[in-house]
């Protein structure tokens, strides 16, 4: 959450609720509902680390509103995040662990495991394809997830060929 908040503040000062709205608007339906408390916790940590600062703005009959802005250190930190290439996805695959170990222990038929996994991936692909996303950002993200699932399904075919019997 740190870097997304820093990036949003690079557009200009904002209070916590505006940040929540901004990120929900950017990512639309593909983002799970955000926890407001988490946003404020992150903002106070960023403030503690000197990456953001806040100004209290008086409001009529209500507590002061805290408007956050990026500090110079925060801007540097953000620049580093943006400039670094993101590491390639790691092969963290719970299914593969299950397949290899259950097969070795003789406690499952590898073909059954593969079939069940294929059904789960197909269902996930179906759900992604049923989504109508209105905005381009969400559409790109959904397309990316579908491409990953297609790769997972192809990989299951390989697992079946080489480990199925």
């Amino acid at each position: 959450m740190r870097f997304p908040l820093l990036a949003l503040l690079a557009e200009g000062p904002a209070h916590g609720y505006e940040l929540k709205q901004a990120i929900e608007q950017r990512f639309g339906s593909v983002l799970p509902p955000l926890n407001t408390g988490q946003i404020y916790t992150t903002l106070s940590r960023l403030e503690r680390d000197g990456l953001v600062d806040d100004d209290a703005v008086a409001q009529n009959g209500r507590p002061n509103k805290r408007v956050y802005r990026l500090t110079d250190a925060g801007r540097m930190e953000l620049r580093g995040w943006v400039a670094d290439a993101t590491p390639a996805a790691r092969m963290k695959d719970d299914f593969f662990m299950k397949l290899v170990l259950a097969r070795a222990a003789g406690i499952a038929d590898p073909l059954e495991l593969i079939d069940r996994q294929r059904a789960a991936y197909l269902q996930a692909l179906r759900e992604l394809d049923d989504v109508t996303v209105a905005d381009e950002v969400s559409a790109l993200l959904v397309e990316g997830a579908a491409l990953h699932l297609e790769a997972d399904l192809k990989w299951l075919d390989l697992c079946e060929q080489r480990m199925g019997s």
Partner: peptide, 23 residues
């Protein structure tokens, strides 16, 4: 025929769950 899968239609909540997009 090795296996058979019935597919259910997706809904909006399924998407956020599938994307696992975190901020």
């Amino acid at each position: 025929v090795a296996s058979e899968t019935r597919l259910e239609r997706g809904d909006k909540t399924a998407v956020a769950r599938l994307m696992q997009l975190e901020v």
